[in-house]
Design a protein around this nucleic acid. Structure first.
Lengths: 166, 166
DNA sequence: AACGAAAGGGTTATAGAATAACGTCTATTT
DNA sequence: AAATAGACGTTATTCTATAACCCTTTCGTT
């Protein structure tokens, strides 16, 4: 499990200029794919853009719906899933198992798993890179001789904004 | 998030008399359902028993298959899912989101979510009740004003037995 | 520039997981 | 014994994901 660079500010729950997020994600993706020698095709980039449309995890079939509308009935499930697989493998998005949905990664660069706080009201997901959690997991595992290779940490609750509103 | 009693020994990965696990789980379930005034019907008990057949998370359709064989083609998906929902609500089993599967709870008594170490080789899942992990999560959430209501913590890797074997 | 290999993606079909909606039966209560 | 609510059977459908096959595009090589 590689160490992650700390995330600057968890913007997901807070009003912000989201086009910045999208632009940043897309240009980072370009750079990373160039560096890795893999191809960020138009389709893959479009899927990444759709995933980044908001900070809410997006279902594969939601993406499919948009693509189908755009391209006039081209696009079947494998089209979307292949693009998502590519983005996952290259650490550009994450899959949220508890939602069967996908969300953009905000410190991309290599395949890894994150830790997420998911608001049950506004549905935003924010990715943590808190080593204390990983450390606690690692420690608990080590105590019984278990070798950690991957983690799924998805916390549901109320974000600060929605808590205020309620 | 209620505090959990510590688990004695994580037996899942270790050879042991598994019929003890099953018997214990079933009799505890009887006691709990009696105390709560809910009905542990024959079907629900059978499903619980099937889930406890091993420490490996079991898919709903695996359960369905067994029931269908037994009862000669009775049993459709809703039959199984209703039983599973009942067992979840009463804290007798857990759902493993990353596997779409269900596993017996080893400290039942009320609906709650656990933390799991899942061996990618032998597929056993052991439930942790490590407060350090919950504490770290709680702390990280609190730092950004997020109110935790539920958690999905599923760690994949190699258990000590399988690590030795490899 | 032409070729061949490999990757990308279209297409059809199917597998796997879960729920909706409705009817019937059976406990339990009164 | 009637009323009622819970449990379960049944059929159909939705949602999620992958298999298998084929054609096209891209890229490296000659």
């Amino acid at each position: 499990m590689p160490k992650l660079k700390p995330v600057k500010t968890p913007l997901a729950f807070v009003p912000h200029d989201h086009s910045q997020c999208v632009n940043h994600a897309l240009s980072e993706a370009d750079a990373i794919c160039a560096r890795e020698g893999v191809r960020l095709t138009a389709l893959r980039k479009r899927v990444l853009e759709l995933v980044w449309q908001s900070h809410k995890p997006l279902g594969a079939y939601d993406i499919l719906g948009v693509l189908a509308d755009e391209d006039g009935r081209r696009a079947a499930p494998p089209t979307v899933y292949r693009a998502l697989d590519f983005l996952l493998e290259n650490g550009l998005i994450h899959r949220i198992a508890s939602l069967n949905a996908f969300v953009g990664c905000n410190h991309p660069g290599s395949a890894h798993q994150g830790q997420f706080l998911i608001c049950r009201n506004c549905h935003a997901a924010i990715e943590l890179a808190q080593t204390p959690i990983s450390d606690a997991i690692e420690q608990s595992a080590e105590n019984i001789g278990f070798q950690v290779e991957g983690q799924t940490v998805e916390i549901v609750g109320l974000c600060s904004q929605c808590k205020k509103a309620a």
